[in-house]
Amino acid sequence: MAAVAFHAVSKRFARHKRRPLLRDRLARLLRPSEPVDPFYALRDVSFELPPGASLGIVGPNGAGKSTLLNLATSLCLPDAGSVRVDGRVAALLELGTGFHPDLTGAENVRINSALLGLSRRQARDRFDCIVDFSGVRDAINEPLRSYSSGMVVRLAFSVAVNADPDILIVDEVLGVGDRAFFAQCVAKILEFRRAGKTMLVVSHSLDTLESLCDRGLWLDQGRVQRLGPVRKVLDAYRQSAPAPPAVAGKP
């Protein structure tokens, strides 16, 4: 039984989307035959993850990585194929989603617990755990706008992992935390995997993916370039994308 299964999934968006205004709607009614140029964000993507697996997703900008995570979070539906996700999902798709700058850290933790589906009792019981893990206890009653982006990501990640999801989805946000917090996250994620939970991670930091994941998926222009053990996939990706030139003055 797979925790996450994509079967021949395609997702397309209209490239020259008309603005959602009345004038444009009427114009379309009058000239319905105007061709729309669809753009495939994902095309024929298939993979299966058993519980406990951890998938690292790489690819150039616009390859469809975020679309894939959004489909797995069931924020949108595929145009073709099927997406099956079995279990409770916690997703960190963007820094500070659902956080409000005028509210305090503690208030934001409560709201985010609710957004992730915790009950009142669970939110109360886990509050201390969340704050301790985040390491921002000193500032927890300050408004969030006084936080650095590193502190926000600490708090967001802390709520997500303490919500005890079956499936954790992370889109390129971990890089904002410092080394100490990153080490803490890695430890937590490894513990997660031992507990049989599933992960999907998008990152441009290949080292991060190598330390967190056991499988890799390389996407390019919405298609699967390569799928397999993380090391092999990342090596192939490294070879395809040239490393940045060394900074002058350095050997």
Binding site: S74, H100, D102, R110, I111, L116, G117, L118, S119, A123
Partner: peptide, 25 residues
């Protein structure tokens, strides 16, 4: 699918709106 506590979420969202609105006045 989202499987959570609807009432707790609703309360939190309503409370959030209150607080945000009145803290800025």
């Amino acid at each position: 699918m989202w499987r959570g506590d609807y009432w707790f979420l609703l309360q939190n969202l309503v409370l959030k709106d209150f607080k945000v609105r009145y803290r800025n006045m």
